[in-house]
């Protein structure tokens, strides 16, 4: 299928993008790796695509004030090769190779993955697990939204129709940061049937600030809060049991909700092991 007609404009700056988005039915075009597929299938009918790919300054990876900031236009491949991300955002580094395929990662952007907010995608879960935040530019200027408040529903986020996601900020890993990541996909690069991104702080032999975020199990990335508490209490089995309360995955074409629930427990056991390991 071919896309339905739409107009196209190249934004020269973030402000210009925000201005262009004033038109009814306009949408931001970043890497396009999800959006253009939906256009090709005529599943979405934007009136105007506002292409931000040529906006300068959005492709930077920078460390500041104990955070790492990843610009919206940083492509997956650039993030994958970034020593900065490997060092300060090891969870993201672990997740990146699972995203699509090389040609997708060459073009897809970090900001696009977060803004598109596919509930089965890796990066939204990582953002949430790391208690990161999203920097947004809109008609009223810039604002910052915590990840916990960003993902609101199926493909729904805190982004308004005239907003542009300009960066994500993640707390930089320190010596006591522990992360874990695992996903189960039928084929390499597929969206996961179930995945788990996890972060915690090591305190002696115990874990604190445990954040367990499952993906592919609902309409958004889902925090398993009871399981987090159980893990912080050192009780993995209670954590696995708690998933029955924390997760209610619907059936989809790859697995029933029951299978996903079972797999979530398997992943929790595997990721819990990773959380006990100090970074290399």
């Amino acid at each position: 299928m071919k896309p339905a007609p739409f107009d196209y404009a190249r934004a020269r700056s973030v402000e210009h993008a925000v201005e262009l988005l004033g038109r009814e039915g306009a949408r931001v075009l970043a890497g396009g790796q999800s959006l253009i597929a939906t256009l090709n299938m005529r599943l979405s009918h934007p009136s105007l695509l506002v292409d931000i790919n040529e906006v300068t300054g959005l492709d930077r990876i920078a460390r500041r004030n104990g955070h790492i900031e990843i610009g919206a236009l940083v492509r997956h491949v650039q993030a994958e090769r970034s020593a900065e991300i490997a060092q300060t955002a090891p969870l993201v580094a672990r997740a990146l190779p699972h995203i699509g395929h090389p040609a997708i990662r060459n073009r897809g952007t970090i900001g696009g993955s977060i803004a598109f907010a596919d509930p089965a995608a890796e990066l939204p879960a990582c953002l949430l697990a790391l208690d990161g935040e999203v920097e947004i530019a809109g008609p009223a200027g810039k604002r910052t939204v915590k990840a916990d408040d960003f993902f609101q529903g199926l493909f729904e986020t805190a982004l308004g129709p005239r907003d542009v996601l300009i960066a994500i900020r993640l707390p930089a890993a320190t010596h006591d940061t522990r992360v874990g990541f695992a996903e189960l996909a039928r084929r390499h690069g597929d969206y996961a049937m179930v995945g788990l991104a996890a972060a915690a702080r090591a305190n002696g032999t115990k874990l604190t600030d445990v954040r367990l975020v499952f993906f592919g199990v609902g309409s958004t990335p889902v925090r398993a809060r009871d399981a987090e508490a159980a893990l912080a209490a050192g009780d993995l089995e209670a954590g696995v049991k708690a998933l029955a309360r924390n997760l209610d995955p619907p059936d989809d074409v790859q697995a029933t909700g029951a299978v996903k629930k079972h797999l979530a427990g398997v992943l929790l056991r595997r990721v819990a092991r990773q959380l006990t390991e100090a970074p290399q």
């Binding site: 299928m1 071919k2 790796q33 090709n40 299938m41 040609a103 997708i104 073009r107």
Partner: peptide
């Protein structure tokens, strides 16, 4: 035409990308 089969892959500025997930414009 939805980015899965890879048959349309070409080089854009030296990097292999999906020709169906990139607009000519």
């Amino acid at each position: 035409e939805h980015g899965v089969c890879g048959a349309c892959s070409v080089r854009l500025d030296g990097a292999v990308v999906r020709g169906c997930l990139t607009l000519a414009v």
